[in-house]
Computed example of a mutant assay.
Amino acid sequence: MEDKDIRLEVARQREMKWLEMFGNWDKWVKHRFQKIRCRKGIPSSLRSKAWQLLSNSQDLLDANPGKFEELEREPGEAKWLDIIEKDLHRQFPFHEMFAARGGHGQQDLYRILKAYTIYRPDEGYCQAQAPVAAVLLMHMPAEQAFWCLVQICERYLPGYYSAGLEAIQLDGEIFFSLLRRTCPMAYRHLKKFKIDPILYMTEWFMCIFSRTLPWSCVLRVWDMFFCEGVKIVFRVGLVLLKQMLGSVDKLRELQGMYETMERLRNISPDLLREDVLVQEVSGTGGCCSITSVHKAGLIMVPMPTQS
């Protein structure tokens, strides 16, 4: 059997496993077997349904028939609508869905973001929501994408998109303390040049790496994120810093704050292969082992450290 045939057979087997899980979802969720499946990657043909089930956004959709259309009919606040309108063309401008100004992709993106400002008027609109909603729209219709966005904002990353960014600042402090334990060399470098986590991790975390990593890596990270929660975002961030700042050779090229920030903002696509990233994030490649991350803080198990 040729390699291509083997890959096709493996892909078919994975699809069958996921279809079996969909048919017995309550059992699979109870036993958390899907964690392993998510780390292996969700088949692209089933990713939409899997994300909706993993996030429980399907339940929200079923519990709120007609709600999205109702939100669409509301006029919305002009201040939010103006900002949303200006942001539409910035989201994945080379993707066929969003390339055309006023095209279907941009229209659906506008519908979702506007609906959220009406659904949560106390929060309104945050610009980091736009790329997140765009990624969802690449995988599912607007109504399903809206409820998935609601779950990300309220269940996975609560407080991240609120004015003041208090939640992301708190998680920045937690992230930096984890870095001190998992990669002291990177920690000391950032500390030396007074590079606060908020300067680089805001886009990473709030956009769930959709603007940071190669696309194949983004999808694998999102698969794990929907299954295991925000700890995946922390782990990916730690892996990236370890890869960029975790050796003497790498730091030799970064003589100051400017060079370091340039490296953090423009991560080379060659830095991490998809399989290596997943291995590191899954805890089998020497990265941290975070068992739970939430608003109150972290519950951790001992982590291997780097000298």
Rank of each mutant, 00 (worst) to 15 (best):
V132Q: 03
L178A: 04
L254K: 05
R14A: 11
G246Q: 03
W18P: 06
S289V: 11
T260M: 01
K4G: 01
C288M: 08
Q151E: 05
Q91C: 13
V236L: 13
G23A: 10
I118Q: 14
I198K: 08
G164Y: 04
F33E: 01
I290C: 02
L81I: 08
L54W: 01
K295F: 14
E154Q: 15
D5F: 04
T212D: 09
S289M: 13
L240F: 12
E96K: 13
L238Q: 12
N56V: 11
F22K: 05
K4R: 14
E262Q: 08
D26K: 03
M206F: 04
Y110D: 08
A133I: 00
R37D: 00
E2C: 06
E15Q: 14
C183T: 13
C207Y: 04
L109C: 01
M303W: 10
E96F: 10
G124K: 04
R101Q: 02
V135C: 14
Q34G: 01
H31M: 08
D196R: 05
Y125R: 11
L254I: 07
H104G: 06
I112N: 11
I112F: 07
Q279Y: 14
L272G: 08
D5I: 09
E20N: 11
L136C: 11
S162R: 08
K191Y: 10
V150T: 04
D59C: 12
L137Q: 02
R263S: 15
T260L: 02
Y116G: 06
C287A: 15
A134N: 05
E173V: 10
L271A: 10
D5T: 08
